[in-house]
Design a protein around this nucleic acid. Structure first.
Lengths: 131, 131
DNA sequence: TTGAAAACAGTAATTATTACTATTTTTATT
DNA sequence: AATAAAAATAGTAATAATTACTGTTTTCAA
């Protein structure tokens, strides 16, 4: 595995992601980091997001909307996806890690992890859309 | 909403899907249905898979590999994704529906559902790959 | 100071999927 | 059975997110 070298672009991508709690997409990272670093290319954003996810410094979220979201908070937690506005937010909730044991009970392979996200209507969309 | 008209292509797509337990992608449906219906187009497969999913006759599975999978079994159940071979299989397990209550406990919006899939190494890949 | 490895910007290519259009099929009504 | 409007089709073009490629620049250990 190649040794990592410092990159200003990578640092700014990580720094930006740490300021956000809304799990931005690569494109949103790109348009924002470009404010500080106008010459950064979209390919560099994608490459570094993938690299950071591979080394575990960030998480890649696939919530089923066809676009990858990224999260600088790598502590175990779950996400809520609003089917009205598409927002992705953190959920404060007790651990449900025990579902891995439930799933593994009658299974012959080896379960290493799970992906769970919840969907519905967020509080903002509940208040603005009647019915 | 437009009234549905019969389509031989749609029937064959659904019939094929019902024979499979491995949650094929649109492309796999296409190559297989083409054996019976050599002139069917890929667009027709996509359109009908989307239509069947919309009316609830099949389910669209997004397991994070960038490709949609389809499942003719619409009864509630969970899936396992092998990170080695990419296979998607059904999991025989007790209900974990109660996680919705856990998630909703401190949440101001309205949770309607959840998506959970488990990943790891399937029994086949465990036996063939040493280490 | 230097040079190999890593990273970059910019662009092209890929992949899955959706949209468009002219033609064919379905089906309710005559 | 004939008809005609709506739905569906085949075939193709377009889109969108992401990855790959290439020549140049940056990093950093020796």
């Amino acid at each position: 595995m190649a040794t990592l070298k410092y990159s200003r672009q990578r640092e700014r991508i990580k720094d930006f992601l740490m300021t956000r709690k809304d799990h931005p997409t690569a494109d949103i990272v790109y348009t924002n980091v470009r404010k500080q670093d106008p010459n950064i290319s979209l390919g560099t954003v994608y490459r570094n997001l993938t690299l950071l996810a591979d080394i575990g410094e960030i998480n890649r979220l696939r919530v089923g909307d066809g676009v990858d979201h990224f999260d600088a908070d790598t502590s175990p937690h779950y996400h809520f996806v609003c089917t009205e506005c598409g927002s992705v937010t953190d959920l404060e909730m007790d651990s449900i890690e025990s579902i891995i044991e439930v799933a593994g009970a009658n299974f012959e392979g080896h379960i290493q992890g799970h992906v769970t996200h919840f969907y519905g209507t967020c509080s903002h969309c509940t208040s603005i859309s009647p019915h």
